[in-house]
């Protein structure tokens, strides 16, 4: 088991996949991080040196990922609601924001459109 950024990963997991498991860290960013630390794209977690692991953790701690990134999204929604926009109200009601019909098929909106949005 290998730790990056306080998360435990299996040794057989690809480093790329492990990085992309963090919120707000996608394929583009992960490819750049891999290149920065000279890790080949098919490397597995078990092959990384302890030095590289600490460097990765340090790198990730400088980035806005996970709860910070979620906070940004939530703040944006909150701002919309506080200034009383239509979008803000729709978020607060858990309804579609961008003019979709609400007769049926609004499961995604119910799931995601909240003021305290999860992800």
């Amino acid at each position: 088991m290998v730790f990056i950024f306080g998360v435990n990963f299996n040794e057989n997991k690809l480093v790329k996949k492990a990085l992309e498991s963090f919120y707000a860290l996608g394929p583009q960013t992960s490819a750049r991080i891999l290149a920065k630390y000279s890790i080949h794209p098919r490397a597995k977690m078990g092959t990384l040196q302890p030095k590289t692991l600490t460097a990765l953790t340090a790198e990730l701690s400088t980035m806005t990922i996970e709860s910070e990134a979620r906070k940004i999204v939530q703040d944006n929604i909150k701002r919309l609601r506080d200034i009383g926009t239509y979008r803000g109200r729709r978020h607060a009601m858990g309804l579609p924001v961008r003019g979709q019909r609400t007769r049926n098929q609004i499961a995604t909106a119910r799931k995601l459109n909240k003021v305290e949005r999860r992800g």
Partner: peptide
Amino acid sequence: TACTEYAPIPGTDPVQY
């Protein structure tokens, strides 16, 4: 094809791996 590990060699210019 980027299947094996690589690392820059320190002190080379241009950098070799």
